[in-house]
Every structure is written in C-alpha cells, then in structure tokens.
Design a protein around this nucleic acid. Structure first.
Length: 156
DNA sequence: GCCAACGTTGGC
DNA sequence: GCCAACGTTGGC
C-alpha cells in the first residue's frame, strides 16, 4: 500500500467534481508526462491513498483524499481526435498513455496550503517534490512518514 | 499576466 | 547524442 499526491486544476476538475461524480469515481485522464504515466501504469495499486491537490488557484494546496480504484490501463482520451488530450502517436495497439481510476474518500477539514507545506521543506518534508522549486510533476509519490505528517497538520 | 523552471522536439 | 528552441506548468 502506497501513498500519492495528484495535482489538478479545479477549474478543469476539482475535488467537488469528484465528490459529485457517479460512484464518486473518475478516470484520471489527460496526463501527458512520462514519469507520471509510469507511476500510474507500473506502481499504483487498488487501495492506495492519495492527496488531492488544487493547482493554479489563489491558494494552492491539499484539499482532499482519494483512493486508487483501478490499476493502470490505457488512457482512451489519447485515441479520440475530438478530445483535447488526443495524441496521434498513441493507438490502442500501442498505447502511449495510461491512467488509473480514483475514488473520492473525503475532503480535508481544512485546506493544507502549499505555503504551509513549504514551512517544512527543510525538516519533516525534506525531499518532498511538491515543496521543491520548479517541480512540475502532476503525480508524485508520498512516503508514509510524509503522509502521516501532513495528516497531522490537518488537526492543528 | 508574467516568467522561471523544466520537459520535449528536432536539426545537425 | 548534443543542445537550442519551443511549449507547458504553475506559483506569484
């Protein structure tokens, strides 16, 4: 069982959207980054937990918790010419992009902002990709210690 | 809206 | 295989 952090722009798809989706489950599609692809294809397992992070907003931060609801499978949006995520270099016989389904678990009791997380960039969260400058990974692994620490912040 | 950081592309 | 140019991410 592993832990993850998944970024999303709430203007496109936020925690509220996941919460109100049927079965509260949604394919995490549109990821076009090889590192993130590899994690979804090779590493993520049903039952893994993840933080849901809102990016590109006034106060970016962790807003909720999701559960991985499938193992990796080819991202169908890459095959659809009418979809903005279409990639002609991916086809069903040789899919280039993968995704997992994610299920809503709960919202955080409060937003754990990026600013707050950065306070621990040299202590409890040292090495955590999110608080490293210039980080652009849309999916990143979270260690159990980091997971527990961030959850403990929620109660403060 | 700006721009730093970084990944990808493509010419050579 | 190098690396300049380009596009995108995402905080501010």
């Amino acid at each position: 069982m592993a832990y993850w952090l998944l970024k999303s722009e709430p203007d496109a798809f936020g925690i509220e959207d996941l919460k109100t989706r049927r079965n509260q489950t949604e394919p995490w599609d549109g990821v076009r980054n090889y590192q993130a692809r590899n994690m979804m294809r090779d590493q993520m397992q049903i039952g893994d937990l993840g933080f849901f992070y809102h990016s590109n907003v006034k106060e970016p931060g962790i807003v909720g918790i999701i559960e991985v609801a499938s193992t990796g499978y080819p991202d169908p949006t890459a095959f659809d010419p009418d979809c903005k995520y279409f990639d002609p270099k991916s086809d069903p016989a040789h899919p280039r992009w993968y995704l997992v389904d994610v299920r809503f678990v709960r919202e955080m009791k409060r937003n754990i902002s990026l600013n707050e997380l950065k306070e621990y960039a040299t202590t409890a969260l040292e090495g955590f990709p999110l608080v490293r400058k210039g980080n652009r990974l849309s999916i990143m692994p979270v260690t159990e210690a980091q997971w527990d620490f961030i959850l403990s912040l929620e109660k403060t």
